[in-house]
């Protein structure tokens, strides 16, 4: 099968009838990511929503080989795959680790930092749905301030979101990208490009989650779009230290006007208890981050 009008591979690697929720942002992003990665890929994934999407024994929904690993070990599992393949002299395969924000920002950060520091030749993908969604929406260090979770059920999350992209940048990686399933072509291009680099590459997927974020499944693409329009999620890539905006964020950086984060917050039930102060602070931190990006952007 070839590419279609979007210049995206027609082949589906996720078979119909997976266990992912209706309107799952991860499912949409993963669908296009796998198309870009292609068949010669070996995946490793920890306990997460993605484990559920991949399916329960003895059937899997995904037509790419995958090694499941424990929660804290994703990047180390990728290191083992890379070392093992090299040892048995198997070439031409891309090792890709995919973890949620819990498996990346929290429990998986030690193994990820280790693998990145070693320059392990693999792509680490974090799908960030901003909480422990597979266990029913608990707070993670990726949860944005003001969000209700089952472990911040009254006061909402009081702390800012950890800047994982910055942490990964501190590892001097050859390629870092931020993607969003509402912009599949941008996502597809970045995954395709990431394959061309050697060493550790990091891609973070902004992954809207209807049940966890309390919005209707039909609105996943809309929410993702609003995230970019407001600057909550910024589409960019950092190639050997050079930051550039991509896609819609590039347009916004050049001439567009970003929407107020209030529009984004109002669209999701998880922010219903957020205080006015929290919203003001969030707007401020989004603006500051945006300015920082604008200052350093090349082109």
């Amino acid at each position: 099968m070839g590419e279609n009008i979007f210049k995206i591979d027609e082949r589906e690697y996720i078979l119909p009838g997976s266990r992912a929720c209706q309107g799952c942002g991860l499912s949409l992003a993963y669908r296009h990511a796998l198309k870009a990665l292609g068949q010669n890929t070996i995946l490793t994934i920890p306990a997460s929503c993605l484990t559920v999407l991949h399916g329960l024994y003895p059937i899997t929904s995904v037509e790419i080989p995958c090694l499941n690993c424990t929660f804290a070990s994703t990047a180390a599992s990728a290191s083992g795959l890379v070392a093992g393949l090299k040892a048995i002299k198997r070439t031409g395969l891309t090792v890709v680790a995919v973890a949620g924000d819990g498996g990346t920002y929290d429990i998986g950060i030690q193994a990820l930092s280790g693998a990145a520091e070693r320059g392990t030749d693999f792509i680490f993908v974090c799908y960030d749905n901003e909480g422990y969604m597979n266990t029913g929406t608990q707070r993670s260090s990726a949860t944005p301030p003001g969000a209700l979770t089952t472990t911040t059920p009254v006061l909402t999350k009081l702390e800012p979101k950890k800047d994982m992209l910055k942490i990964m940048e501190a590892h001097s990686l050859p390629y870092i990208a931020s993607v969003n399933p509402s912009y599949p072509r941008d996502l597809y291009e970045k995954f395709t490009k990431a394959k061309l680099f050697k060493g550790t590459r990091y891609i973070q997927i902004y992954a809207p989650c209807p049940p966890g974020w309390a919005y209707l499944p039909k609105d996943t693409v809309k929410i993702g779009r609003m995230a970019v329009e407001t600057g909550i999620c910024v589409l960019f890539e950092i190639e050997n230290g050079r930051f550039r905006f991509t896609g819609r964020s590039k347009v916004l950086a050049k001439k567009g006007k970003r929407l107020s984060v209030a529009d984004y917050l109002d669209a999701q039930g998880r922010f219903r208890q957020m205080s006015r102060d929290q919203a003001v602070q969030l707007q401020q931190s989004v603006d500051e981050k945006w300015e920082e990006y604008v200052r350093r952007a090349v082109e």
């Binding site: 009838g17 997976s18 059937i59 899997t60 929904s61 995904v62």
Partner: peptide
């Protein structure tokens, strides 16, 4: 099998 090793097929979660 001596360990859990899945094969791909449509409808893992049934007729969704």
């Amino acid at each position: 099998h001596i360990s859990a090793m899945c094969k791909p097929a449509p409808g893992e979660a049934g007729k969704t």
